[in-house]
Amino acid sequence: MNPVTVLRKFFDRHGLFVGGYLLAAVTFWMLMMIILPQLTMLDFSFRDNLPPSKVGGPEDVYTMANYTFLVFGSPGNPEPFNVVDLSVFGRTILAAVFVTVFDFMICYPIAYFLAQVARGGVARLVVLSLVVPFWVNELLRAFAFKILFGASGVINTFIVTIGLVDQPVDFIKADIALYAGLGYAYILLMIFPIYNAIESLDKNQIEAARDLGSPWWRIHWRIVMPFAKPGITSGCTMVFMLSAGALAAPQILGGPSSLWFTQLIYQWFNTGGNWPRGSAYAIVLLASCIIFVLLMMRLFKVKLGEIGR
């Protein structure tokens, strides 16, 4: 079908007003909110950080300098690579993977319970108690976690009092507070896609597997998880992307020695005053995350279209 027929059919089905609105809104969203800002960012990342007077002048040329800096550091760097920034990058990706796996392990049972086991009132209560905490501002939640995990926080007071440990544990330094905060922040984004997928699973499939002698773990491994794969992928992708790109939680809950890659970006943009370099760092993070997700999807044999289901 050629684009004109597609467009005509679209307007025939939805009418001029609704069709026009949908088209305009989606176009605006895609173009103005997503594509243009990212393109500007991309353009920025290939330029030098010039004072305003020199912008557009003979020195304003495309350069790879910002990317080379991320990989090799400043020209006077004695190391072969920019060890500091690259290790922050690597640690951020690893930590985001960890948060994703951790979230999946917590959320899958809840999603399964909601979709297949719980009925009416109980299900509503669980959903409500999952959603309501998110009415609290993200920053407030992060600070609350900081208080909770602090040296004289509730958790430390409790475990010291019952004699589990002699000295308060430094949860902040061990990054436990950070992982807990990040994990908690994206719980809903993991639960609901999985819940959606499992809900449409025919109960008879589960009963059939059980009737054929299957223990519960194999039912999940062979029947429920393969069926919920699109939902699992969707949830994991969102949690991974958002964890890798989180700023508030690492800023507040991160230990003094552990920088998150987004914090580096923030520093370049803000205190460093070097927008092009910040852009380059941001583009690298975005591209790496997308490539990583696509690789994972290839590994688990999920098609991109399935996520939208």
Binding site: D202, N204, Q205
Partner: peptide, 11 residues
């Protein structure tokens, strides 16, 4: 016992 479901419930 083995049960054959009304909708068969094949995987």
């Amino acid at each position: 016992t083995a049960l054959i479901f009304q909708n068969l419930a094949l995987f």
